[in-house]
Amino acid sequence: MARYLLKQLFNMAITLFAVTFIVFVLNELTPGDVVRKLLGPYASADQVEKVTREMGLDRPVMVRYAEYMANAARGDFGQSIVFRRPVSEVLWDRLGNTLLLAGVCFAIIVPFSVLLGVLAGMRERGWIDRSVSVFSSVCASIPEFAMGVFLLAIFVVQLGWLPGTSPLRDDTGWPIWTQLVLPAAVVVLYDAGYLIAMIRTSMVEVMRQPFIRTAVLKGMSFRRVVVKHALRNALIAPFTVILLQINYLVAGLVVVEMVFAYPGFGRMMLEAALAKDIAIVEAGTLVAVSVTMLTQVVGDLGYRALDPRISI
């Protein structure tokens, strides 16, 4: 166990190091000049040149990378070009906002999909199964931006019940919780649609197993069969998938955050990447990769807890 954790930690360090380098080089190779993007189309060539020199961007890429890594090692992630603030400030602020949204979504998605997935899967082709399957495939097949626009049209434009953007400030006439409703609804519907289908399939398979038939035949109540025997087995396979949703919820909410002008991590990363704000992109990538790798470790450990036959 300790060996396993040490090994994972080592892997993580290597991966993070490799990723910083790849991101730096990719950023360098993508078209467009950082300063030109920062100053916009009306800036003169002289202005661009001056700022390039001021920011030290006229130096070779390897020199800048080495400098960046040296500073990062000391815990200094530099200054954001776009936001004109220390990267750590911007990053934690935006990450906090995203974690709030992600937390709300995760807390709804998991019980909601487990409930519907299990209900649908326990009686294959029953009416619950059919209705849940239709619901989940519709949800999973509508892209997030389209879902966002539908919900906006209904709840903001038609009914006027909810705010259309989510700046997360309470002085815009809408309490903060109302600003979370629509972004969370889009994420929950889109993501749950997929998870429900996964859990249902797993449940259907488990329900076809001989030991379930045995349990039913020996006279155990159906309710007990489902809760005591089927549920745990049916959740083993979807467990990793559920954990993978954490990655998506932290780093993949770009579309939702753009549609609702939500000041989150995904929107920050998109804007930083478009502006080639390397300090933000690097730090954000480190966070995203760490989250991914940590959920993998948790996934492995959880797997073992659910199924004692698996050892790591």
Binding site: G148, V149, L152, V156, V157, G160, L162, P163, G164, T165, P167, T172, G173, W174, M258, V259, F260, A261, R267, E271
Partner: peptide
Amino acid sequence: IIDIGEDPAAAVAALASKQ
């Protein structure tokens, strides 16, 4: 001045809900 990003849909949404 409220920064609603580059997405034109955000301007519609913000005007619609009077933000």
